[in-house]
């Protein structure tokens, strides 16, 4: 290496120029691609919501969303109403699915009143109430959508994660785990208890739907606990709304 590259001045200059170039490059890519990325995220959200209420193209074993081209149409066909619950007040808002749950959770921590979106879908004469949930896994965020009926019995669930361990925690988005939630009760004797992820329920096929438990994934204890925790803390917030449904 030549002497010129050893001087302090050169080193400082090199670092400055490099930071400017790299910064400009990254800023360019980020802003140029942002609209496309956001559009992809919006479509994915619609796909997730539809998936939870059973509108999907699943084959025998794997979870497959409705295709990208069809999703907008299917979404307006199946999702009949979108509402926002804010402190007992219910308002209709057909952009409710765009509410960022993460931002709402932060707002709640800051003492503000949180907006809770809920999507109401109709399929084969049945009504589905789909709520977004978000929590912590082992490494990073986990989130999902849970479809319920008016009695808070789960009718479908979709989970996803940002960075859970491949082959272990990442399996929360596999059919064998998500499908276990279908039919599972969130309430016990009329009181909300959530659904625990259990290693010892001795019910691997999940035949008992009223035990408030589904079978855990081996090697994914903390991710599984995270799923149970977010179901419990997030869906609990909807209980008062579901209670008003029953009296109608």
């Amino acid at each position: 290496m030549s002497k010129r590259t050893e001087s302090n001045l050169y080193t400082v200059l090199f670092a400055t120029v490099m930071v400017i170039i790299v910064g400009a490059l990254l800023a360019f890519f980020a802003s140029a691609l942002k609209p496309t990325i956001n559009e992809n995220k919006r479509i994915e959200k619609q796909q997730n919501i539809l998936y939870a209420m059973g509108v999907n193209e699943n084959d025998e074993t794997s979870a497959i969303f409705v295709s990208k081209d069809k999703v907008g149409e299917e979404f307006s066909k199946y999702i009949t109403k979108q509402i926002v619950i804010q402190g007992g007040k219910v308002t209709e808002d057909n952009k409710a699915y765009l509410i960022d749950v993460k931002k709402e959770q932060t707002a709640e921590k800051e003492g503000k009143q949180r907006r809770l979106p809920l999507f109401i879908g109709e399929r084969d004469g049945k009504t589905f109430y789909i709520a977004p949930i978000r929590g912590k896994g082992l490494w990073d965020a986990i989130w999902g959508f849970v479809a319920m009926d008016a009695n808070m019995v789960v009718k479908g669930a979709y989970f996803d994660h940002a960075g859970e361990t491949a082959g272990l925690g990442s399996n929360i988005k596999q059919r064998f785990f998500m499908d276990d939630f279908i039919g599972e009760h969130l309430k016990k004797d009329g009181k909300f208890v959530g659904i625990a992820i259990s290693k010892s329920n001795n019910d691997p096929l999940n035949k008992d739907k009223t035990d408030n438990e589904v079978d855990a994934i081996a090697g994914a204890t903390i991710t599984g606990d995270g799923v149970a925790a977010m179901i419990k803390s997030e869906l609990r917030k909807y209980v008062s709304y579901f209670n008003t449904l029953k009296t109608n």
């Binding site: 030549s2 590259t5 050169y10 670092a15 790299v22």
Partner: peptide, 21 residues
Amino acid sequence: NIIPSKIRIIVQLIVVATLVI
């Protein structure tokens, strides 16, 4: 030939991080 040897590890890290991002 232009990387200053004092900060070469940082430069390498920046290159790989930029590429990946």
